[in-house]
Design a protein around this nucleic acid. Structure first.
Length: 592
RNA sequence: GGGAGCGUGGUGAAGCCUGGAGUUCACGCCGGCCUGUCAAGCCGGAGGUCGCGGGUUCAAAUCCCGUCGUUCCCGCCA
């Protein structure tokens, strides 16, 4: 006799078309309604839920079923009795009259409910992540993530890209983020680092003539957590030779559009809009502007040229600007407006001027009496102000004005959730960030091609790099650049970045050597898959789209990692814990 | 490194401000009844060191200090 299949059909796929068929289903008890004389079980499998009906007189085990028991049933698909159809469930027209029930695996009482009526504390969800996966939001997130990554792979492969794996045990290059380190047993005292990105390896692939590379790459950065940052995260990483930044962006747009289609089922209009870094900073006070709403920063310096008002005149004379936003009909009380002033001061502003346009066309504001009629009229015109609108002004250096108005714009205008998607490229990033003390720090990794090497040397504060970010709803999704392919240029860039020749050789000598063997011009990009998914699924944290994430302290509550290791393990690695660390560990109960 | 929120039977919430008996609600769990429910219903029951430690007080879930955990933010993330 042929062995019977463990499952002939999916519970969630039964419909009136199958009435009369005998099926074997397997899944979990999502709900049990025991009426004594008849028992209803909502049987859930990966495809959905169907009601099965059990006669306990025929099958006494019906009363033993409990939540989340894993069971198998054999029965006949039948139409529900008149008036008992359930239009709220996809399979609600039918039910399965059960002839046989097998308890495949019982379940302990659950630590939390599988249905999503109540949100359970995340720590407990993570401790029982396997149960969390049975809940609709997480099940949906897993499927969406799989679909998005599949769409990316399909898109890249069809465009002729080769998927190549790069190592996860590499050499530490101590700049950028802190490296995750792995001690070597075979060379005690030496350490591998986990890659912050496959950057140099994918460039080596270009040297090697791979031409078009992609990878769904795991990356590691040992920095503090945020709702959009984990120690390990995933990027769609691409690189290509003999193409331009525009080519890279067009390819990324295809892959992202395919993901959006896979997750949201909508066509993303491409090409995506572009802003330069300078525009983004001027108009939105951010290098990752949220373009879902307006409230743009307006420069009204010209309105106040020659003003009598010292608060603004002083700032303009010392090379500053007067900029502001029309926050619309805020309807804030005096204390609410004062709160904005405090927020602005916390952001580094000397002050924040607020003006509310009254119905009669006059401005209500503590500074109105210092401003001329022409200035007041100019504000109405420049901000396109309507009665009830609140205009907020900052007079300071342009950088400060943006740093203050950008966050306030978000605070007052940022939409809840991510129903609407507003992608934008931000291009022409500077080579250097200028710190408050005037010092320069490289804004990108040192393999980024500057637009002009001369500018970079002679005017580093304003030099532009061939670097670009992809931004979605005010979140940085990824970044890329045209890379340096000329070893002489690379050497010069290291020099300007303050990396000595010796230092560059010891850290990147192997890479610089590679550049000397006929390196093609190349460029690439990397998209943060976790961030993209979180926004597409409107989740507040990337933890909700990462199957097994860690908490803010870097702990996995399920496996309890990171853990202590035995003395033997440490000895094999040639590692001794520092005395103060040892002391702290012995204070705590071992294995604690 | 800094700021803020949260921590109450297995789960979610209320109680805390304004101290007075481990009090309440929903779900779950255990037992009983029940043949058409679909958040089934009805009856009964078990289950908590109010994160932990210290302080104030006649009295602390409640006020104060510390600490741990967790979340959000600043720093950090080339």
């Amino acid at each position: 006799m042929a062995k019977e299949p463990l499952r002939t059909d999916y519970a969630g796929e039964l419909s009136a078309a199958r009435i009369g068929d005998t099926v074997r289903l397997a899944g979990w008890v999502a709900k049990r309604r025991d009426h004594g004389g008849v028992v209803f079980v909502d049987l859930r499998d990966v495809k959905g839920i169907v009601q099965v009906v059990i006669d306990p007189d025929a099958i006494p085990a019906a009363h033993e079923l409990r939540m989340e028991y894993c069971i198998s049933v054999v029965g006949e698909v039948r139409a529900r009795m008149d008036g008992t159809e359930n239009p709220d469930m996809p399979t609600g027209a039918v039910e399965v009259g059960v002839a046989e029930v097998t308890i495949l695996s019982a379940s302990d009482p659950l630590p939390f409910m599988i249905d999503d009526r109540a949100d359970t504390e995340e720590l407990i969800r993570l401790e029982y992540r396997y149960l969390d996966f049975r809940r609709p939001p997480m099940a949906a997130a897993l499927r969406a993530r799989g679909a998005a990554v599949h769409a990316m792979r399909t898109t890249m492969a069809e465009a002729g890209f080769l998927e190549v794996e790069t190592p996860t045990l590499i050499a530490s290059t101590p700049e950028g983020a802190r490296d995750m380190l792995v001690p070597s047993r075979l060379r005690q005292g030496d350490f591998y680092a986990l890659p912050q990105s496959p950057q140099l390896f994918k460039q080596l692939l270009m040297v090697g003539g791979v031409d078009r590379y992609y990878q769904i790459a795991r990356c590691y950065r040992d920095e503090d957590f945020r709702s959009d940052r984990q120690l390990e995260f995933t990027q769609l990483d691409i690189e290509g030779s003999f193409w331009t930044a525009a080519d890279v962006q067009a390819m990324i747009e295809k892959a992202v559009a395919a993901s959006v289609k896979a997750v949201r089922g909508v066509e993303l209009p491409i090409p995506l809009p572009k802003l330069t870094y300078a525009e983004a900073m001027d108009r939105f006070g951010s290098d990752k502007p949220d373009l879902r709403f307006g409230m743009e920063i307006v420069d009204v310096s010209s309105v106040f040229a020659g003003t009598e008002f010292k608060g603004f005149g002083g700032a303009l004379e010392s090379g500053g600007v007067v900029r502001g936003i029309n926050a619309g009909a805020l309807g804030f009380s005096r204390s609410g407006l004062d709160g904005l002033v405090s927020d602005a001061q916390a952001l580094g502003a000397k002050g924040l001027a607020w003006l509310v346009l009254e119905e009669d066309g006059t401005w209500r504001s503590p500074i109105a009496k210092f401003l001329s009629e022409a200035e007041l009229a100019g504000l109405v015109e420049r901000f396109d102000a309507r009665p009830g609108d609140t205009v907020l002004l900052v007079a300071d250096m342009a950088k400060v004005a943006g740093a203050v108005l950008g966050p306030i714009r978000l605070q007052l205008g940022k939409p809840e959730g991510h129903e609407h998607l507003a992608f934008t490229w931000v291009t022409d990033f500077p080579v250097f960030d200028v710190h408050d003390d005037g010092s320069l720090a490289p804004a990108h990794h040192p393999f980024t091609q500057p637009v002009s090497l001369d500018d970079m040397v002679e005017r580093p504060e304003t030099a532009i790099a061939q670097a670009y970010d992809l931004v979605l709803n005010g979140s940085e999704l990824g970044s890329g650049s045209v890379r340096i392919h000329d070893p002489e240029v690379q050497a010069k860039v290291f020099e300007v970045l303050g990396i000595s020749h010796e230092e560059a050789q010891s850290r990147f000598g192997w890479f610089i050597k590679a550049l000397r063997y006929g390196t093609p011009p190349h460029a690439g990009f990397a998209v943060g898959v976790d961030r993209l998914l979180a926004i597409l699924l409107e989740r507040d944290s990337i933890r909700d789209v990462i199957p097994f994430p860690k908490t803010q302290r870097g702990i996995d509550p399920l496996t309890a990692s990171p853990t202590r290791v035995t003395d033997l393990q440490l000895r094999e690695l040639g590692i001794d814990l520092r005395p103060e660390v040892k002391a702290r560990l012995t204070e705590q109960a071992p294995g604690d």
